[in-house]
Design a protein around this nucleic acid. Structure first.
Lengths: 347, 347
DNA sequence: GAATTGTATGTTAACGATAACATTAATCTA
DNA sequence: TAGATTAATGTTATCGTTAACATACAATTC
């Protein structure tokens, strides 16, 4: 409290600025927000005093009036996967330009944490949410209910379809088919697949692309060579060890994987087993994360435009927020094949 | 508008729940916040109706009353550096446990963007800010003024000292000295250094550690072999090329670097120049990011406990927010030497 | 010069929630 | 059984800002 009985917690309010000037708060508000009908001289005086007093507008109060927070929530499943920080970089790029702040939450692939985070974001009245689902997000009704509360949502990378929610992803299925076709072109026949969890779109789509490639090439699919596993290095290593334990005639001569981390884990397993890449077993990844180009041998993979996914997703969400009639759409960005040595190509 | 003239934007308020029950908002508020003096039966009825109506508390309004947002701002200089996502993971871990949300902003090493972000965070009335400064954050008075506004701040990794602001970092100087000593122990004499920008603590401290090691060992410091450069791969490559262009007798037999990315860039330069590592030139990094262990040859480096830095920084900030008398402190976490092949050791 | 228009400013109510105080009815105390 | 206590609920004011309406006065119009 000051001596005249007014409270001061150090943060200057409009009212205090107004009192210092002998004006009403409304006039001060108008001046600081560049509204019309303020005497230019008054305005200048107000701005000077406001600056001198260290006034910062209180967006909490503004939000309460305007029902807009200029804040979006970003829900990612694993910040430790190099793909996601790049996506976040893209999201930040677009949203900071538009003067939105982002709440980042990391679910660590835990659906319960994901749900709690989203509840908290709702309570904080974010204007919209960008979501990449965890591998355990199997209860679609949660997102359906969420959507029915009226909050704007855009999925990215890992989407749930048929909910009337936009999705920004990559052409997973086609890219997966292409990289598999590349292995086939290089002469491999006994091609195995380290598949991601079927609960997420990327898991299903990439596996589907793999199957398409084999089927199109008339190669019979040996289900024993398709190993369902997780998305981490450790998962990849474990799954590869299972394949290496197969009888020699069943062992694959090439392996396609759901993503780079699992490919890196598989490479470790193959090396430890004493086999060489690509001579004994060829391998390809999916993501093109930072390690792909420097691993020995360099990993043939699919380049996923993570930064662009982030930009596009943020852009779509902002449009959905600001435009009542923004249509729901499914965007597939192009992920292209990056040929290195691990697949037996010599380029 | 509904037929009885009340507005509904889809989001249910306390007042609406109260009206539906024929109670006052206060009773409903008490019931939903588990306050005493509510009839257990009434409480149960209120909770049921609130759930049925899909009520979510409005934290914006709560914040206006309580003057607390349960929100912290995180300002990082480059989300593309693998170190920072790990730090963010640690921050998220602690803050989500304590029911705080984090605003993430990426300055891209741009001081102006950093300042704008911090202003925005202030306007959003975050309870505190975690900052790792950009390499261009040279105007210390900005942070001094910021601190004087009363907002709680904790620096991490890249700090500014003597401002009365806590800092959670690692023992950069000592670790840098140790890794240089390791090179000396391995018999190298003409040791060069790719130094980071002197504007950030890590740049100054690590260089100081390097100098200490040479001085302690009685090795004269050749200033031509200390190249000031940035923190990225490209910077490292450029700087290394300068060293490679020195007359042969001046060329270093070993290189220490400010961080792993610059070491990786330098490795590229050395390889392209046709020299081999560590036979012709040994090299060491600093960070122990994901690529360090899989590059050829594996990179000897300093393991920086990024995740722990994030946890400790978040913890310190929350304590500073919630405890009026929390002391200012400088915490140095221990970063330890990780010996691999690039330094000429055979372990 | 009365009526009109426009400019600069002020007043009141509202956003959604809670703190602080007020009321009512039931229960206890001596 | 009067008076005090407690439990359950309600009323009012407030957080910082802005929308909507209100006022005062100067400048313009006919």
């Amino acid at each position: 409290m000051t001596k005249d009985g007014k409270k001061t917690n150090g943060i200057v309010t409009l009212k205090e600025v107004a009192a210092a000037l002998g004006l009403s708060t409304m006039t001060v508000s108008r001046a600081l927000n560049d509204r019309p009908n303020v005497n230019p001289e008054t305005k200048k005086r107000i701005q000077e005093v406001a600056t001198k007093m260290g006034y910062t507008p209180n967006h909490v109060a503004k939000s309460l009036v305007s029902n807009r927070t200029y804040t979006i929530g970003v829900v990612i499943p694993e910040i430790g996967h190099a793909f996601f920080p790049e996506v976040v970089r893209g999201i930040d790029e677009i949203s900071s330009e538009a003067n939105y702040q982002i709440f980042l939450t990391n679910s660590s692939e835990d659906f319960e944490k994901e749900k709690r985070s989203i509840e908290a974001l709702r309570a904080k009245r974010v204007d919209g949410i960008l979501v990449s689902t965890s591998i355990k997000s199997t209860d679609f009704s949660f997102f359906e209910n969420l959507k029915n509360t009226g909050i704007k949502i855009v999925f990215f990378d890992r989407c749930i379809y048929n909910l009337g929610i936009s999705c920004i992803g990559v052409n997973d299925r086609v890219a997966s088919r292409q990289i598999t076709e590349h292995l086939i072109k290089n002469g491999y026949k006994k091609i195995a697949y380290l598949s991601g969890p079927p609960e997420v779109t990327i898991g299903r789509e990439r596996l589907a692309g793999f199957r398409e490639a084999l089927t199109n090439a008339g190669i019979e699919i040996n289900e024993d060579r398709i190993v369902e596993t997780g998305l981490t290095e450790i998962d990849g290593k474990e799954a590869m060890n299972k394949l290496l334990a197969l009888p020699k005639q069943d062992r694959p001569d090439a392996v396609a994987t759901v993503n780079d981390p699992s490919a890196l884990g598989a490479i470790e397993a193959i090396k430890e087993y004493g086999l060489s890449i690509p001579e004994d077993i060829a391998i390809v990844g999916f993501t093109n994360e930072v390690r792909a180009s420097i691993i020995d041998p360099p990993l043939t993979t699919i380049n996923q435009p993570a930064y662009d996914v982030g930009k596009r997703a943020a852009y779509k969400l902002l449009r959905t927020i600001e435009n009542e009639n923004e249509p729901v759409e499914n965007v597939e960005l192009i992920a292209n094949l990056v040929i290195r040595k691990s697949c037996g190509s010599n380029s």
